[in-house]
Amino acid sequence: MANNKIDASKWVDRYSDYLFNYTITRINDAELAKDIVQDTFFAGLKSMKNFKGEASERTWLASILKRKIIDHYRKTNSKKGQAEVRMSYASNDDETGDWLEERVEDTFFKNADLNLENTELSEAIYLCLDKLPEKQAQVFKMKTIQDYDTEVICNELNITPSNLWVIIHRARTALSSCLEKNWF
C-alpha cells in the first residue's frame, strides 16, 4: 500500500468519539452529527492519498469535519433565508416595540461563556484520553461517559471487577495529571 501512515480501518475506533463529541457541541442533533461524522470518514478515505503526514490523523480528520460542519450551516441557512418571515412590529407607528418577552433576562448570553468553556473542556478531555492506552480509554469511556454498570463492562470485555477498578484507577490518575497540565 502506498501510504503506510494511514490506517483507515482503525479510524472509527480511534477518532469517532472525539469527532462526534466535537460535532454534537456545534450541531445539536445526534442523528445529524452521526451523519456528518460518517461523511467525514468517507471524505477522508477519498482524499487519503493527499494526506502528507504533516499533521496527525486526528487533526487532519478534524479539519475535514470542520468544513463539513460549516457546509451544513451554509446549506440550512440558505434554505431558511428563503422561508423566513420577518415581523416588524415597531415600524408602523412611532411606537417602539415594547413586548413583554423582550424584557426577560437573556440567559443565553449569560451562559454563552460557560458553554464555550465546557465545549473546550470536553475536547481537552478527549485529547488527554487519546494519550491513554486504548484499553484504558475504552473502559474509562464506558464507565464514566456511557454510565455502564460494572457488570456489563466486565461481561463485554471479559475482565474481572478488580481488573476494571485497576484500569479505572490508572486511567483516572493519568487523566487527572494530564488535565492539570492542560486545563485546570
Binding site: S16, D17, F20, N21, I24, T25, K34, V37, N118, L121, S122, I125, Y126, K141, T144, I145, Q146, L179, W183, F184
Partner: peptide
Amino acid sequence: NAIKQSNITCLD
C-alpha cells in the same frame, strides 16, 4: 466534576 461539567458525549 470536570467531566460532569463538560457534558462530554461519545457514540453508542
